[in-house]
Design a protein around this nucleic acid. Structure first.
Lengths: 197, 197, 197, 197
DNA sequence: AATGAATGAGAGTTCATTCAT
DNA sequence: CATGAATGAACTCTCATTCAT
């Protein structure tokens, strides 16, 4: 039983690993299920035994990345006791997480848009999870009286967008070589933007 | 002669108009050339007479939007004599231009990223044209001594990203109803971010 | 021993019962072995332990129906001592048997023909068993001098076809509601056709 | 224009001819569109340009056969002025038509059942067209007073079934070699069955 | 005996592109 | 210039069958 589950688990991981590789290399639409078959050294039937369709594989990866990012982000926020530094911690952590999962990040920020309009809602939901996190933080800052009231929703979207574009450019052009190099400038910009310092 | 050019011009315009409609409605990959044939009331052969392939139609539209946006942006910058207000003018102008060309904007900011890896270079080039514009402005501010030195490249990318995410969300979710409603908050954020006021 | 046989017997019966249900509901070709797995609450391996392949399951059902029908038919013929009434008894009995085994009948008369060319020989063999029965009866009638000589082979095929079409229509359209309602007319037709009365 | 129509017409005919050949040789379900491509010396895209799917090709053939059979049947009935002989004319004509279109007949009487349950209604409709023809004739006989009242619906279905089974057997076993050899016996049977002579 | 994960050949269908007219 | 019939490679997905456990 446990044996079977293990094997099944392993197989699913192999498929997902291969899918990340293929999707990020060729893009969602240009990736064939056959490519994943070859990369994962499994079989078509095997893949369709574990996933109902190609979309489901992609969605699984998207959710994984979102969960990873989200849990890391929350950890970072919780680990930093100083309210004024939580934002910096969040930013640095996101850059680190994105930077150390290049391919998953690519699926998350780039390829998802090419998977078809059915994914649009999903994308906005995922983006929303992070801007909401930022928004909560901004609201806390306001409530604590350390920054002046602001439209925290628009601000958090802009905050996420600034990071998003930086990371996207890193993915598509390789610039900057180390994503974290963007940290000092982004930190300054975002802190001052919301009115800290 | 002129007649022919006119007819040709008209035909090309009909195709491009149809393409905007179709691409923004279904996404680049889910749009068939046949869809454009129907929408433009032309023919398969007609389209392939004027464009070498589907990609070229999309690239033409992308360039159009980029040119439109760029010329409007430069106009806005030139029309505003006050250096400190040029940034606000640029921002407002971009929101207005995006807001009044919903579908082209969608192609520019959403569909292009998902259209496949062949478009990646083009996208970065187009995004780059705008962040470069911003970057030049930031450099001017620094040179004029009104803001402290900053990594203007990273900052301009972040600036563009903030706008980008706001507009993208507007396109995909319809929020905010009027894109320009985001202006005050974005203005405040971006001004303060680079160190103005 | 007996226990094992019983369990096996039960298992095989469960599979066959499920197969009748599935095959008659979806047709032979549109029925998946997985459908039978679910319906029978067994497993893929279990089915392939008891049957070499999908075809064999279907053939088993076909033979069952043929045997059932054949034994009933012989009983009916034997139970009726009056030679002139044997034909009527056979007809009534067939309508009753078909009418009380709707799904098996469907496999026998409808699905089998459409199951593919591999089944053609089998079908003709099964149909033949019944027309041969009729043929023997006709030959007896001729030998007894109660009807004039006739090509009993062609006649028996026609006889079976008349019943077949009536039953098929009942299966596919539900008309007549009670299959036996067709008896009086069919009886008259078939009796007179071969020259009785 | 006419040129194009001609070519198109020719192409469609080539596809349909190939489809008859393939469907009757391998059965509907065991025939691949690729088989038709090869047989017709066209291309997959070409086939799907003219037909929306595989089913449509089959339906077209079914309708063709039905129309052919129906028009021939009506001609035969009209050509025979003697009411008492119309039935014989119809029977002979059907045997001749079936006999001279072996493959189309096979699709009509055998393969259609294997195309899936979606075809069941169609099949009954087609069979119905012929039994209705017979039914009208029987009603005329009754009205003319030459035969005693009878349930003409059941009788016509039985009539068609007798022919159907005979023809089906001819198709599947090749017996009798000449389908028309069955005529004398069938004629006798069916005439006497309804009460003629 | 029984299970269900795994296989892979093959299915129908799509669609960017070509080209004879 | 314009047309639309034709092409064929490529796609996602299915399913009877196998086999390690």
């Amino acid at each position: 039983m446990t044996d079977r589950q293990d094997r099944s688990h392993t197989r699913i991981e192999k498929i997902l690993d291969a899918a990340v590789e293929i999707f990020s290399r060729k893009g969602y639409r240009d990736s064939g299920v056959d490519d994943i078959v070859v990369e994962s050294q499994t079989s078509k039937g095997g893949i369709y035994f574990h996933f109902p369709n190609k979309q489901a594989i992609f969605l699984t990866l998207l959710d994984r990345m979102a969960n990873l990012l989200h849990s890391r982000a929350e950890e970072a926020l919780n680990a930093e006791p100083d309210l004024l530094k939580k934002g910096d911690a969040l930013l640095l952590n996101m850059l680190k997480t994105f930077g150390s999962h290049r391919r998953l990040t690519q699926l998350f920020l780039v390829e998802a848009l090419g998977a078809g309009h059915e994914f649009n809602d999903k994308i906005m939901e995922l983006h929303g999870r992070f801007s909401t996190l930022v928004q909560s933080y901004l609201d806390e800052l306001v409530k604590a009286g350390v920054v002046a009231p602001i439209n925290s929703q628009v601000a958090s979207i802009a905050w996420f967008g600034a990071v998003n574009e930086t990371v996207t450019r890193w993915i598509l052009t390789g610039q900057p070589v180390n994503l974290e190099d963007a940290y000092p400038t982004l930190r300054l910009l975002l802190r001052r933007g919301v009115g800290l310092n």
